[in-house]
Design a protein around this nucleic acid. Structure first.
Length: 368
DNA sequence: AATTCGGGGGG
DNA sequence: CCCCCAGAATT
């Protein structure tokens, strides 16, 4: 596959670099040479669009401008800055990795493949991207764009969703890097895929590589890359309690939130207490039973609050939320615990929450 | 090699 | 509605 000689490789690189210098977007992380800040951008960009990342990166770098700043921050604050971006283990891994750079590498992002790859959350793509972009090390950075671009230029009909395909595309991408131009070339390949050689209806009429693209010559550009279809997400029913206490004392009304476990889906995020529904049980009974079992609380379900549907990569939530009220008063000594708290509705925004629960919080605050 | 991890934009 | 997105870790 992709048999290229040095001359063809040089021509592709030359044309892509010329196109890139003319058409590259003015992205905020292209204005810095700081390897840490470039690293942050690459982690945020994993499975995430450039337009989505821009405001997150800007706020994150403003708050955590250096490795020292991020290393010293409370994890929950880091999550708060990541809130809504998804794949929250990226944030946790990034902070773990940054702390290791502090200890092991004296606060300087390592510039070798072995060292940077040992950091948590740094896989083959991110390692190549940071090393090439920040240090101009001639290593490939194969992301979804590069799979698509190379599969079309060289008409590679291999299933790119198979892990085995990655190594072949990596060696091809590495071979194409012109001497001394790893940084710009790798970015040109991705930028080209993001703006010209796009997934559907590629802009072949504006393409600087049209004359040498094998897929275009065969009229196959729309059929590449080959990718296996994903399984549909499985659906589960979730019951959520918007539980308010009725003490009405000096602090006013408070609502119960719970922190999810440190591992698994939405790890470490706060949410209104939620449980997978028990088939055959009435929602009110089910919710009452679950809250008693988990938090030793007696509540009464007052009324239906809202329905939410949310699809994750592999899961579909069908969520029903009910307004509930705590029976009796809350002892002042148990108004907070390690993984649950009673908080004033106005302070819900201080806690990192998933997109679904953010929406519930806004409904509760009357902001919608 | 197959699953688990979020969320949103666009055809 | 489906696909895709500057993927990595776990099993």
């Amino acid at each position: 596959m992709g048999n290229v000689n040095r001359k063809e490789a040089a021509e592709i690189a030359r044309k892509l670099l010329a196109w890139y210098h003319e058409h590259k977007r003015d992205l905020p992380w292209r204005r810095t040479g700081d390897p840490y800040q470039i690293w942050v951008s690459e982690v945020m960009l994993q499975q995430t669009r450039v337009e989505t990342v821009i405001p997150y990166w800007t706020r994150f770098i403003q708050r955590f401008p250096t490795i020292e700043a991020l290393a010293a921050a409370p994890e929950e604050e880091v999550l708060k800055f990541w809130e809504g971006l998804g794949y929250y283990s990226r944030a946790r891994n990034l902070q773990t990795a940054v702390r290791e750079v502090q200890e092991r590498y004296g606060g300087r992002v390592p510039d070798t493949l072995a060292e940077i790859s040992s950091l948590s959350g740094v896989g083959p793509y991110t390692a190549g991207a940071v090393l090439s972009i920040a240090y101009n090390v001639p290593l490939p950075a194969v992301d979804g764009n590069v799979f698509r671009v190379l599969s079309r230029i060289f008409l590679i009909e291999e299933d790119v969703s198979k892990p085995a395909a990655r190594k072949k595309f990596e060696s091809l991408a590495e071979f194409l890097i012109p001497p001394g131009e790893a940084s710009d070339f790798n970015q040109s390949l991705m930028e080209f895929g993001a703006t010209i050689c796009i997934p559907k209806h590629p802009r072949c009429l504006s393409c600087p590589l049209q004359t040498l693209c094998k897929a275009y010559a065969e009229g196959m550009q729309e059929d590449l890359p080959i990718k296996a279809k994903k399984k549909p997400p499985r659906a589960i029913d979730i019951l959520t309690g918007i539980v308010r206490n009725g003490d009405g004392n000096r602090d006013g009304e408070r609502v119960l939130i719970v922190r999810r476990p440190q591992e698994g889906l939405l790890a470490g995020l706060w949410e209104f207490p939620s449980f997978e529904a028990t088939p055959g049980k009435s929602p009110a009974e089910d919710l009452q039973h679950s809250l008693r079992q988990q938090f030793a609380m007696t509540i009464q379900v007052e009324q239906h609050f809202a329905n939410m549907q949310h699809t994750f990569s592999h899961l579909h939530w069908n969520l029903q939320a009910y307004s509930c009220r705590l029976s009796g008063t809350v002892e002042t000594t148990v108004t907070a615990a390690d993984n649950w708290r009673w908080v004033p509705v106005g302070q819900l925004g201080d806690f990192p929450m998933s997109a679904v629960h953010q929406k519930l919080a806004k409904l509760l605050q009357g902001l919608v």
